[in-house]
Simulated assay, not measured.
Amino acid sequence: MVQEAADRRAVIAANLQVVRERVAAACKAAGRSPDEVRIIAVTKNHPASDVRILAELGMVDVGENRDQEAAPKAAECGDIDLNWHFVGQLQRNKAASVVGYAHVVHSVDRGRLVEALAARSRAAGRELNCLVQVNLDPDSEQGVIGPRGGADPADVPDLAKAIAEAEGIVLGGVMAVAPRGADPRAAFDRLYEVAAVVRSRYPRATAISAGMSGDLEAAVERGATHLRIGTALLGDRAAIVG
């Protein structure tokens, strides 16, 4: 077991070094500082022991997609000073649980979810950072939430306004996932345009959460401030048990 843990740490450390080098190279090509880009380690389907390894290697931002996995994992790692990011689609009935551990929710895509998160944050005496998830699927109809979630770009200003005016939550910026099979640069260009509109009205809402293992260079080139990296850090893994 000791050797297995050491081997796992070596793999993650090597992967993290590669990711950091990719980000640095992308920032150099884009004329940006690496300090402008935060790497979020998405630990979906990976155990809490991997979170601990990442923390030992200097990572402080951890992302999760599902509350049923995130809540117990965050509790197990409660002795570590981490920033937990909820990055998956979120149902209103999970709002209370997510507010209990998350510092940032990247996937706010409808008004009723805004209301639920704000109410639960107020009840918990917390202030939750919220990003508006933008649907970049060119085939989606206005107002229709796609398979990965997200508000239609035309609806983002109103949703941003709702977050900014709600007590208990703070508007942090925007998030999106590049549509499958599409040019990520074109998608992230569109996200940057939406982000600029939001930022023009709410100057502190500067976060642009975009880019994953396969398209992080395109995201950095197009202004991403937060990258959600899973596979490139931790590899593939079947769903954890328990």
Score class of each variant (00 low, 15 high):
N129F: 03
L128V: 09
G111S: 14
A164Q: 15
S121I: 00
R112M: 14
A71C: 07
N65M: 08
N93H: 09
Q68S: 14
R148W: 11
A95H: 11
P153H: 01
G63I: 02
A162G: 00
V87C: 06
Y101W: 14
V62R: 04
S121W: 00
D109N: 04
R112P: 12
N129T: 14
D139N: 14
N135P: 06
A116C: 06
V134G: 09
G125R: 06
F86Y: 13
G88W: 05
L136S: 11
P147F: 03
I163L: 10
C77V: 06
H85L: 14
V132R: 06
N93S: 09
L136H: 09
A95Y: 13
S97T: 13
R122D: 02
A71K: 05
E115D: 15
I145H: 15
R120L: 04
A154P: 05
A119C: 05
C130I: 04
R148F: 12
G146N: 14
P153R: 01
A96E: 10
E64R: 03
A96L: 02
D109C: 01
W84L: 03
E69R: 01
N83C: 15
H103L: 02
S97D: 14
D152Y: 04
D109T: 02
A74I: 00
I80T: 06
A154F: 07
Q142G: 11
W84P: 00
P72D: 06
D109Q: 08
R92V: 14
R110V: 09
C77M: 10
I80K: 02
L136P: 00
A74P: 04
P157T: 14
V105K: 01
H103S: 13
E127N: 11
D139V: 04
G78R: 00
L131W: 01
G143R: 07
S107Y: 10
E127T: 13
L159K: 03
Y101I: 03
S107P: 01
K73W: 03
Q133W: 07
A71L: 07
A70S: 10
A102P: 05
D152V: 05
D79R: 03
P72G: 11
A118N: 08
D137I: 04
P153L: 02
P147R: 13
A123R: 07
A154T: 13
P157V: 13
V60T: 15
V105W: 01
D152K: 00
R148Y: 10
A151F: 13
H85T: 09
P72W: 11
R122V: 12
D158L: 09
H85G: 11
A95C: 12
E127V: 02
L90H: 01
R110Q: 12
R148E: 11
E115T: 15
N65R: 06
D109M: 07
L128S: 08
A119I: 05
L90T: 00
F86I: 03
R66I: 08
A75G: 12
A116R: 04
G149W: 04
E64D: 13
E115M: 03
V114F: 10
F86D: 07
V60M: 12
N135D: 15
G63E: 03
E69N: 00
N129M: 13
Q89S: 13
A95L: 09
G149F: 02
S140M: 02
E64K: 03
